[in-house]
Design a protein around this nucleic acid. Sequence first.
RNA 1: GGGCGUGUAGCACAGCUGGAUAAUGCGUCGGCCUCCUAAGCCGAAGAUCGCGGGUUCGAAUCCUGCCACGCCCGCCA
Length: 589
Amino acid sequence: MNLLQAMISPQLEQMLSAKGVEKATWEALLQPSRESSQGDLTLPCFPFASILKMAPQAIADEFAESFPLGDALLSVSSVNGYLNFKANPEWLADAILSNKIAVGSALVNTGSTGEKVLIEHTSANPNGPFHVGRARNAILGDTLVRLHRLHGDDVRAEYYVDDMGKQVGVLAWALEHLSEEEVNELLAEREPPSERWLDKADHQRVRWYQAAQILRKDADDEKKERIEREIGKLVHASEHGDVGVLQAFESAYTPVLEGMLATLARLGISYDTFTKESTFVVDGTVAQLMQRLDALEIAGTAENGAGYLDLGQRGLKGKTEFFYRRGDGSSLYATRDVAYHMWKWGESNRLVNVLGEDHKLQAKQVGLTLEELEQQRPEVLFYSFIKLPEGKMSTRQGNVVFMDDLLEEAHAQASAVVRELRPEYDDEKVAAIAEAVGTAAVRFNIIKVSPEKGFIFRWEEALAFEAGSAPFIMYAHTRACSIAKRARSHSASNIDCPSAESMPDGLVDLLRLMCTHNDVLARSVKEQKAHLFALHMLELANAYNGFYRDCPVVRDGQVDGFAFAISEMARRLMRSGLEGLGITPIEEM
RNA sequence: GGGCGUGUAGCACAGCUGGAUAAUGCGUCGGCCUCCUAAGCCGAAGAUCGCGGGUUCGAAUCCUGCCACGCCCGCCA
């Protein structure tokens, strides 16, 4: 609790330095109490024992005895060598009601922190619809974008469009050379495409891509060779910046990308800018970059003229050669990525990338190369893949759960719940609630676990609507909304803060939690850990439910001005926090 | 073989810049709707923190060895 920490630190410093304990030795030790029953901040006194030649318990006793309480503290106690500081809830209430807790907005760039952040996420190859595995990137990335905005950073969400190279080349080749009948025949053994997505280009065109992949693997040798030659020619042309080929690629993938973006839009995910990979080839910066790399001390040349950096000299273990130019002189994906990052550094002063764990080595190579060019490396958030109980998801092989299908299913199940619980709602209202709840549940299920944890997708977990899920937080928010609606139609008493002794637990817990809200957000953004904030939002909702239980706002036609003011502040924090997680804060459900 | 990551109650997951009785959800068992939305609230049971060493006043957290799982080790993207 930074609010409290700022209050007691000067006093602590004075008392400890008088005893000869430097600030550096205790500052990091003062931390939030583990158990809320213990207090709000705790200082373990064990490390001081050897300096002061006293038992930890005795040190804690002495400080507890002499520490001045002032307005902010309710108590300072000594337990087993720990010094526990408990905030006075009256002081916390005052801090909350005098706007010391920032509510913020996840939807607009206020730039109040002065920090400019460019977050690149998703950047999926535009060759087919999003499956749940690929969507983890977008959900993680978009949540980071929103949390940074909520925190007050000036954020730009960027999608790097892979508009050249093999994947798009295969798609373009297939659309050019394969008829619908051929595609259907090649995919005859696969599950037929869903009727639902007949008019969605990502679902349609991916079949051409899949059919081509089958041909590349299973056709007779002569045909295989011919296909590889044709695709290779396209890829080669694209990598040399052939404008005609790049345009053909673009018309092949654009409808697919649009379909993918439509899926993401349903999840509330959008981008500020799209940058095409080919940009840096066409404008010559990649060629310039390769010349600069050639001149580096650690650069080397292979027999066929290919260029590489020996990153082993910079500490890279394992395979130390990083190739940035092929024997034919063309660039590689990673080379273009270096050029892209150099450009990005010109656009922003903090770079964050969201990448799958399979990109770890590549990101390291790009990072080391950037440093070699006297640039900084970006911050990277890696995530593990989402697997199906049957194994890994793969667009190529077709064993996937499509995001579009998951969202439909989520909507349907949420809809069934609303109809059962609120039979009085009309169809339109049910649909709106079901959409908000369904998409929120899907997002939250992914965001609440830490990214490096690989997890297995299970329908029943993705569609959980109970405690521990998005609807739990949404529900607490609707409670606050309905209280507000009711309170506004009654007369209210003055805002008089009750005495600390008369406050029920539910109120105290909520006050304390609200006072950590900004701390958690700051840490979440600093460390790029969205799940910390997600879990905090669950706690906030839980605390609001406790407040709801213990503190009636409207009683006997009279509004308790203080309780209402606290409820309103909690409602605003829940609202902006929900938006920060990409959840629509609906007012009824 | 090498590099990186993960391993915490039946299941899932937090904590991992060392600090008190390892937090939470699902599931299980028991209680609460004449009272601001019960998608809720209250309570109970359930954990050799993968295994073995080490450092420390103190280890789920740091070091080390081993085991299991995942990802990577292309002049692919």
